[in-house]
Design a protein around this nucleic acid. Sequence first.
DNA 1: CTCGATCCCTGGACGC
DNA 2: TGCGTCCAGGGATCGA
Length: 311
Amino acid sequence: MPELPEVETVARGLQGSVAGRRILSVTLRETDFIDDPVAIERELPGRQIARVERFGKFMLLQLASPSAVSGPAAATTKLLAADAVQEALLVHLGMTGNLAPHFAGQPLAKHTHVTFVLDDGRELRYVDPRRFGRMAYLSGEALTAELLRFGAEPLLATAAEFSRRVRSSRARIKALLLDQRVLRGVGNIYADESLWSARIHPARSGASLKSAELGILLKALQKILREAIRMRGSSISDFVDAEGIAGDYQQHHKVYGREGEKCFRCRAKIRRIIVAGRSSHFCPACQRAPHRVKLAQKKMKRAGRRRASKR
DNA sequence: CTCGATCCCTGGACGC
DNA sequence: TGCGTCCAGGGATCGA
């Protein structure tokens, strides 16, 4: 499941392997995950991939304008701000997406939905069994508007702005971490890992959190994301990067996927509950439940006893 | 505003 | 071996 570190790993790989290449032609197969397939077929052929960057969980394949001179200079032009990008192919990997170059002669993997033929005998192929991904060609104001929907980059966010966004909401912190309008790029794994690190229960409301706690949480999140990027992401299910290499960070998960195992800090059993519709892994001893969760638990226990005594 | 529910989709795990 | 069922979760959407 590609989240920020996994997408960063793929984007860096593509920046190294396909930036500067020109797209000669496009072949689409399944298109239900593409915003406007016709626009892709119309706009991409003949265009040069100037640069590949990550934006939240998206990859932005920035396109050089058709008249631009190809070559190293064009490929290394640094994009300073999202609103400076004129045209781009947005690619979201969803749960099972993979975007990687292949030699043209190689057989097509099952679920290959998009093929971009490149000018060097390779093809950039998008493979996505579940099609939870998204692909869109956007330019100008439409591109700007799309990018503005998202919150701060987690690695660049300041404690003050993070704190402001979280504390003004009564939603649960787990939901807020997953909300791409608050921070862009955090998914289920890194939300759980950072909450464990900061000893915050996933069901705490944003408004209930102290600024100091949120400062610790953001620092923890940033440290975990940087570490995960260094290890090329977490490979659970079958994530591999643009070179086909698996990540290693899953070896370092402290709570994700460890239900029933012992907490590395206090040896209590890691629990899994559903928060914000997602599996949430946490240590019940290190991450204290908010009052209303405790009340709900008591209520359930009372109900359980009533049922038992009726028989 | 925030919630849960539902849907999208396939593959892997699991029980029988 | 095969078949049915459940689950994984990022995101959109809808009604409460």
